[in-house]
Simulated assay, not measured.
Amino acid sequence: MKLGLQLGYWGAQPPHNHAELVAAAETHGFDAIFTAEAWGSDAYVPLSWWGSTTQRLRLGTSVLQMSARTPTACAMAALTLDHLSGGRHIVGLGVSGPQVVEGWYGQPFAKPLARTREYIDIMRQVWARQAPVTSDGPHYTLPYDGSNATGLGKALKPIVHPLRADLPIFLGAEGPKNIALTAEIADGWLPLFYTPRMADTYNAWLDEGFARPGARHTRETFEICATAQIVLTDDPAAAYAAIKPFLALYMGGMGSEDTNFHAEVYRRMGHGEVVDEVTALFRSGRKDEAAAVIPDAVVDDSAIVGDADHVREQIKVWEAAGVTTMLVSPGSVAEIAQLAELVQ
């Protein structure tokens, strides 16, 4: 089992201790650091900033929102960071949701799976640098040929020769069809809410993708980097209370009331009644009550809370379920050292 440090995205202000967390992750043998983005801080600037202080850690995004960048712009940023880091970049992508895509980026959300396939094809053309990059669309047409086109667009190859012709791409997929697509066209999966209890279900969806013609990987070479909220504590009740507001936000407050992909993940886990109650309370402004109604067992489905022996045992359960890397968010250097010791 490997560990990745999930730095996430910023809140109202930049975090104060990420430099020391990154240094500790490298010292204690973590495999990677990851950054994220929502509608505030972006993922690439912090990853480049903190990554410049490292020598060994892989540098990943979990995840870049596809609608924030054209595929060629994303490929340019990726090849640039890959050069600067000596070939340590992982491109983690996700489609986000319609509220962010249409409300923040002003882009259409329709056909997310088809857009993902096309987006990745263009990025890989850039990195392969075998011919000028073209795409027939319909989502990303290169050269652009819309009704207001000048007709002067030219297919181009990147000026910079990529360090690697095939950078690893991981996808932050949540639904069955998207997970199957991930197994077919990507190099790894970045589940946000993963439960080992559903490993057989996940494997069935992944196997559908692995079996498709042209699939890039088998189960043996595919990575699953799952977010794992691990809290080492002798006071589980306090830890549960701290985690539940986060879950209430994602269950009840992300997306719209009718379109919340994170809520659907918990419905597939069998927690539909909890999701309904949390959503109703959260969207009526009763956020504290929404968090309070979440049972501890729901937290346990995608988190590990307890003493060192319990955490060590559960890490083995996640590994047996197929997870290759656990993305964790320790808040201190001491916690990083503790977690590193538990996976040795």
Rank of each mutant, 00 (worst) to 15 (best):
1 M>C: 03
2 K>N: 14
4 G>E: 09
7 L>Y: 00
9 Y>G: 03
11 G>I: 01
13 Q>S: 13
20 E>S: 15
23 A>D: 07
29 G>D: 10
30 F>S: 01
30 F>A: 04
31 D>W: 09
32 A>L: 13
34 F>H: 08
36 A>R: 00
36 A>S: 15
36 A>W: 13
37 E>I: 06
41 S>Y: 04
41 S>H: 11
42 D>P: 07
51 G>S: 11
55 Q>P: 01
58 R>K: 15
61 T>L: 14
62 S>K: 07
62 S>H: 14
65 Q>T: 14
68 A>S: 14
72 T>V: 15
83 H>G: 02
83 H>S: 08
88 R>Y: 06
89 H>N: 07
91 V>K: 05
92 G>S: 07
93 L>V: 09
97 G>P: 01
98 P>A: 12
98 P>W: 08
98 P>V: 09
103 G>L: 07
111 K>C: 09
112 P>V: 10
113 L>C: 05
118 E>Q: 06
118 E>M: 01
121 D>R: 07
123 M>D: 04
125 Q>A: 09
125 Q>K: 14
129 R>S: 13
130 Q>M: 07
138 P>A: 09
142 L>K: 03
144 Y>G: 09
144 Y>A: 15
149 A>D: 11
149 A>H: 07
150 T>R: 08
151 G>I: 08
151 G>P: 05
155 A>F: 06
162 P>M: 13
167 L>P: 06
168 P>N: 07
169 I>D: 03
170 F>G: 00
178 N>R: 04
181 L>Q: 10
185 I>D: 01
190 L>W: 02
191 P>W: 08
192 L>R: 07
202 Y>I: 00
203 N>M: 12
208 E>G: 01
210 F>C: 10
212 R>P: 07
217 H>E: 02
218 T>K: 08
220 E>P: 02
220 E>F: 04
224 I>M: 09
231 V>S: 08
235 D>H: 12
239 A>H: 05
239 A>E: 00
242 A>H: 02
244 K>N: 05
246 F>H: 14
246 F>I: 15
249 L>Y: 15
249 L>K: 05
257 E>I: 10
261 F>G: 05
262 H>M: 14
267 R>I: 11
269 M>G: 14
270 G>Q: 08
272 G>L: 05
272 G>V: 04
274 V>C: 12
275 V>T: 06
276 D>C: 03
282 F>D: 02
284 S>W: 05
284 S>Q: 15
286 R>I: 00
286 R>D: 08
290 A>P: 01
293 V>Q: 07
294 I>P: 04
294 I>Q: 02
295 P>Q: 15
295 P>Y: 11
296 D>K: 05
298 V>S: 03
301 D>R: 13
302 S>R: 01
306 G>I: 08
306 G>H: 08
307 D>W: 11
309 D>A: 12
312 R>L: 10
312 R>F: 05
314 Q>T: 11
315 I>L: 15
318 W>N: 01
320 A>K: 15
324 T>V: 11
327 L>W: 06
333 V>S: 03
334 A>L: 12
335 E>M: 11
343 V>C: 06
